[in-house]
Structure formats: structure tokens, C-alpha cells
Nucleic acid binder design. Sequence first.
DNA 1: CTGAAAGCGCTAACAA
DNA 2: TTGTTAGCGCTTTCAG
Lengths: 339, 339
Amino acid sequence: MSKKRLSIVDIANNLNISKTTVSFILNGRAKEKRISTEMVDKVLKYVKEVGYKPNSLAKSLRTGKSNTIGLIVEDISNPFFGSIARLIEDRAYKNGYKIIYCSTYNDMQKTRDMINMFRDRHVDGYIIAPPQGVEEDIASLINESMPVVLFDRYLPTIDTDYVVVNNQFSAYNATQYLVGQGYKNIALITFANDQTQMVDRIRGYQMALKEHGLKQLIKELPFAEDLTESITAFLKSRKGIDAVLFGTNRDATYGIKIMHNLGIRIPEDIAVISFDDSDAFELHSPPITTVAQPVEDMAEHIITILLDKLNNNGVGTKNQSIVLHTDLVVRGSSQPVKK
Amino acid sequence: MSKKRLSIVDIANNLNISKTTVSFILNGRAKEKRISTEMVDKVLKYVKEVGYKPNSLAKSLRTGKSNTIGLIVEDISNPFFGSIARLIEDRAYKNGYKIIYCSTYNDMQKTRDMINMFRDRHVDGYIIAPPQGVEEDIASLINESMPVVLFDRYLPTIDTDYVVVNNQFSAYNATQYLVGQGYKNIALITFANDQTQMVDRIRGYQMALKEHGLKQLIKELPFAEDLTESITAFLKSRKGIDAVLFGTNRDATYGIKIMHNLGIRIPEDIAVISFDDSDAFELHSPPITTVAQPVEDMAEHIITILLDKLNNNGVGTKNQSIVLHTDLVVRGSSQPVKK
DNA sequence: CTGAAAGCGCTAACAA
DNA sequence: TTGTTAGCGCTTTCAG
């Protein structure tokens, strides 16, 4: 049972032909090389029979292609990234690509290490939700004409493909909506970093408030494992708040838990809107209004662009910036203020 | 900038030494081979300077090791699997292993394809939450003395390591708890398959009811993308139910949504307990009582066992079956019946 | 202490 | 139409 794996040489020997012939047949170049149909059939039959599998490592070494895509997300256990990963994986496999993945937790050093590891492993292309500080590494990837697609956020100083959503408008729109519902003291609670999606969300929030002459109230969360303390402190100290927009699902999940603990009622005491939709928000009582990102579309665009580059060898294809639109999913957590 | 990558030969040539020496030094076998310290320093310095990275493909081809672990879960976008994946990934990377992963959606054929792909890619070990019907493939992996660790469920006919929880007792205990709270008409709604974890959960539920002479009411959900219809039909048709135990977080998520739609109040009309804890359940009003699996411990055990086998080359290590215990996290969804 | 050389399994130019 | 052969970059035995 535990036979040694056969190589192309073994099968050539057993059939008394050359390994070149086998190689050509296996790679579907029989026609091109005008190999006789009988030969082809014989080889194919034998290969099936003995269950021969080519050694993809050797193939990769020779061809320089690994048929692997490196997927770098922020946190695979976050449903937003999990869903995207799942969809990308599916499409990739259907096109003969495997996925190697990792989570960065927005850690620049870890991300750089991972990029290097992936480079080491000769991945054919990269899909990255980049933290700040990896511009150089990504630039050098691109320099080596590696296909790189960024998503969720992009790097302003790097010219490459990316797929994001219209974060600024989305935040603007969500805030406008809260104002329209009668809220006057709208806070933004969000993880603070310089990533484009965050900057844009903050800007959108600010624009909406400015438009109505309302006061801004931004709580920038620290880079921390646990956000309980900082959010609790904020919510306790600011008694006037009547609505909160959360910058990410993670922030909101913490925030809502804390509101429960503090006995803050949603939306009677504080209305809530979060970025990123999820079951948790839909199930909540009252259900949470969210800015839903079009996860399927994002994944679809990301993988399509990447496969395109992979197939065209990156030649002649212009970089694309895809900006998708979100949906404001209105639910009970943002009901009109009752007088 | 876009220099060709240097190989070990290049660096040997540039230093006027043999590539063997370089290889030995790079692999930390300088001492063993009694290579002069100056030589070592010189090489190391040069390597650092030019940023040489060994070609891991070539290395793998030669050594037969790929330093890659294949991770096969049911659905990476499910928080339960996502969390485990995240933890495993972390430990794996710290030990020099990369992860290749895929989701099976319990599809036997897809799983078999994936196992073959992984085998192709020469992964060094497998971590699998196996669906039914892949026994043969896994057996043949083990036959080739590949380290394989199963988790979440195991295959009764296969002798290999696995990490699971005490599903039967957990379901028994949760059901007992509901009985103790005064519920008399307790249904079990669960995805129906023959996987061990499901069989055990059903059995536990049955034992508890039998013990109290209560009637069993099991709704086996079909293998379907959307569970709305079947759960809705069940909940509508069985007016007597006063409590439900859900077999998985997915089932419960659907179930709770549907209860909302049907105007069923939790726990006044129907009490709820679900397997697998998550933010969604904690945030829900009332928060959902859950059977929480020790995700960290599971991941820890899984990766520890695998790394162990990997290091010992699988020799001399007995297979281990680790059965971890769950926590019944009591929350508002299972409050005592009010008379 | 260091080097020459074989070979992992495959592809593809070149020959026949 | 098929076969010969030279590597891809690395490890490792065996000889110096």
C-alpha cells in the first residue's frame, strides 16, 4: 500500500517510451506535438490506472509557477474577512489556484514577515488588506511584476489594483440618516489608525455633522486586544450622546455589549449604527442598523482582477480601482427620536 | 531593482567558495562540519547584505518537506471554525509552518479533491474536520504515515488522533438544565448527518428526555443552503414546544431569526439553548444560553499533537483522542418557566 | 575543514 | 512523431 510515489520517469519506463512524450501528453500538448492518438490513450489509461499524480513541487520549481495565491487579511475569525476569504477561496480553487492565508491583526511586522514568507513560497499573486507601513514591501512586489490586489483599504502611495467601498459617502450617509431621525449628539467610535477606510469613514462622519452644524464627538480606540475599558470610559463620561456610529463590526460588538452592561437602552438612550453587517446585528433586539458592505461583489471583483492578471501575465492590463457601494440596512436601533 | 533572485550558487561564486559550504552554514551545520568561524561570519554577513532568500520550493523538492499544514474545515466563515483556524495558524507560523486551507461545506467530493490537492502540494500534515465518506482517503493518508489530526468530529473506523468535545454529555446536560428550569416540551433542531458530533448530541438529548419520561421532538434539518423554510415549517406545526436546543450555531442563528419573524418570544414562548458560543448569542436580547466549546484549548491540542508528530516523524507516538469539556453558559434565553 | 557531484521530478529546447 | 538532455535550486554523500 505504501508504495513509493511514481514519477514521470517510472511511467515512461513502464511503458517503454520517453518521459518527454509522457510530459507532453499530460500537459495537453499532444496535438501540438502531433503525438499519435493511440499513444495518448495508452498513456492516459496507464496514468489513470496507477493513479499517477505529478509532483507539483518539481513542476513549480521548473516553471516558476506555484498556482498558489497568498491571502492576507486582518483577522480570519472576523466574519467580514471570513466571508470574503470563503468566496475568494471558492473561485480560486475553481480556477486551479490554492490559497495560503494569514491574519495580520494590523501588525506591520507580522505582515512584512508574511509577505516574505509568501514570496519565499513563490505564490503567484497576492490579495492583501494592508496595514500601514508595508508600502515598501508591496512596492517591491509590484516591482517584480507580481500581481497584487488590495482590498478593504488601499495605500495612497502605491499604484496597484484595489477593491474598496465608498467609505466616506457611506459614513456620511449613515450620519445624515441619524440626523434625519432627530439625533443631535452623534458620536463616532472607531478603531484609530491611518488606514484609508478609517480615514474616509471619519471624514464622512465629519462632513455630515458640519453640514448640520452639529458637534463632533470622536472616540478613537487604541490598538488593543480588549476594547472594553476605553469604550466604557467614553460612554460613561459623555452623558449627552444620543447616537453612536461604530467604525467596524468589532468596535460595535464591544460597544453594544458595554451598553448592555451599563444599562443603556438602544435606541431609547442611544441609537446605534455599525459598519459591516452580520448575524449578530440582525439578531440583536432591537436589530442594529448597519452599513452593509457588498461582500460577494468585493470577493468577485478581487479574484476576477487577480485571475486576469495571472492569465495575461500582467502585461497590458491597466490597474483598476473598484469602488463598490454599501447599503444602509435600516433596522430598529436607529428609530426616530421620540419627543 | 528587478534583479534576478540570487541562488546559493551565486553567493558561493561571489565569495569564491563552494555552495556546499554555504548550504552547511545556512542550515546551521557549521559547527558540526567544523567550518571556521570567519568563514561563517563572512557568509552570513554577505547573505544578509544581498538579502538572499533560499528557494523553498527547491528545498522542498530535495527534502520532501514543504513546511506546510493542510487545514480542512467545514466553513471558514463560521466563527467557530474561523476562531480555531486563527489560533492554529498562529501557532503553526510560530513553528515555521504555513497553512493551506479550504472549506468543505460537508461536501464529500470537494473534501476528497482537496485532500488530493494537498497531497499533491506535499503538505507535511493535515488537520481535518471530516465529513462522512472520506474514510478511505484519510486511511490512505495514514497509510503513507502522514500525520493527520481530526477535530470537531472523528471517524469511528479510522484510528488516528482527534480532538473533540464531550458532545453527548454536553447535550444531555443542556437538556437536563432545560428540564430543571421547568420545560416539558423540548425540541432538538439540528442539521442531520451521521457525523459523530451530531449523533452524540442527539443521543445526549434523548437520554435526558428519557430519564424524565418526556417526549422527544427532533427536527432534522436538510443539507441545504437556506434553512429558513424547514425551520419555519417545524416551528409553525408544533404548537406545544416550550424549549429548543439547537445543534449548531448555524441552526440557532436561523432559528432565532425565524422566531423573531413569527413573533415567538424568547424565553416566554420558547426557551433556547444553542451549541457554540458567539457574539451574536451574547448580544441577543435576551442573551442566548449556549454550550460553549473551549476553542482555545481545542486549537492548542490540535496543533500540539500535530507538531509533535511532525517533529518525531510520527515514530513512536501513540495516537491520542482528546475529549474536552464544554461550558454551559447560562443566559436569559433559558430562564425558569413562569407559572 | 572544504569541494565535487549526484539527484529530487519536472519541462522544453534541440536532435533524430 | 519520439527521444536526449540540460537545467530549476537545493541537500548531502563522499573525497579530498
